[in-house]
Design a protein around this nucleic acid. Structure first.
Lengths: 172, 172
DNA sequence: CATATATGTCAACATCACTGACGTATCTTG
DNA sequence: CAAGATACGTCAGTGATGTTGACATATATG
């Protein structure tokens, strides 16, 4: 426990640390998304499409509700985005086998190609940052980032499947 | 397909690492902005206003061009946001003393209060993540995040002033 | 059968960004 | 000083992404 009396300097530095954290998140996210955004713009898509494509690629067979829970947007917003992606041939769908109300989503070949192209850019950026920072720093990065995420979603990032049942079902 | 088991596995893990990085950034940014967004919504402002208020608070006396360079949006977009903030009394402006074409921006008392309220939330989240991860992890977090940022802006985050002259002038 | 759930759709709207064109005040330089 | 560059503003139009609210349909479940 920090001694509150000790002081101003300690407190000041701490505030600086937090401010730095805020700015790191702003600048990193700004630069992390800038290049994919530009590529997407060239083919008439936006960041929202990227996110949908990414998570459909990540969880093949994911349904709309699960995707909504990840993206935290309204179904109306997602519906527009998914509709465009299906219409343009990036995403295919078929009814769930167990629950036929569900739309199970998958990337088409074209969708997978786009996903690779977009995330390759981001992977490269991350790889460069990881290499420059070293393995120790990477572990720290992970720990802090996980702590920033709402508790209920930490499992998702840490490798837990979106839908327990699907873990066994999904081809990989 | 696994010819060289070790090689493939290594490659697989590495890809996993990068994928994790992508997702950490998505989820962390999503959750980092959600609560301030809600507060802003209550007073009819949005995330863009938050960013402007934040950086005006960070660099009192900053001018429009410098703010544009940080935010990387068009002057038309920023103009709208700044105009609203000035009209609503969160930001004050006065011509630069050296170059009178410039608008030097500062937070009003009201603006500073709002800034504190919004960033307090984010500071708390960061503080919690830092505490949970430990000082070593924090250093790693910083190193990786810095590496994600475009090289030309790393200095800004690392404490370099936006405008060398202002460093001496700015109160604080 | 009744109800809940998964998803979709229509409509209206706000925010935040963009491009392009043009205007004005002020600084800088030949 | 005249001419051009710079800092900033504004008008107009557009698009992407999000929202709320209301209602529809198919399917699952008790």
């Amino acid at each position: 426990m920090p001694d509150l009396r000790t002081g101003l300097q300690h407190l000041y530095l701490r505030d600086e640390d937090l401010r730095l954290g805020i700015e790191l998140l702003f600048y990193a996210y700004r630069d992390f998304t800038a290049e994919p955004d530009r590529m997407l713009d060239d083919i008439g898509l936006g960041r929202a499409h990227h996110r949908a494509i990414y998570f459909v690629g990540r969880y093949p067979g994911i349904n709309v509700g699960e995707l909504l829970a990840i993206l935290r947007i309204t179904k109306q917003s997602l519906s527009r985005v998914l509709g465009e992606l299906v219409r343009k041939g990036y995403i295919s769908q078929r009814p769930g086998t167990i629950d036929r109300r569900q739309r199970r989503l998958e990337l088409t070949e074209m969708g997978a190609a786009l996903e690779r192209k977009l995330s390759e850019n981001q992977r490269r950026r991350i790889a460069a940052a990881y290499r420059a920072a070293g393995p120790n720093a990477v572990e720290g990065f992970r720990r802090v980032m996980l702590g920033l995420i709402d508790e209920r979603d930490r499992g998702k990032v840490a490798g837990e499947p979106v839908r327990p049942v699907a873990a066994a079902t999904a081809r990989r």
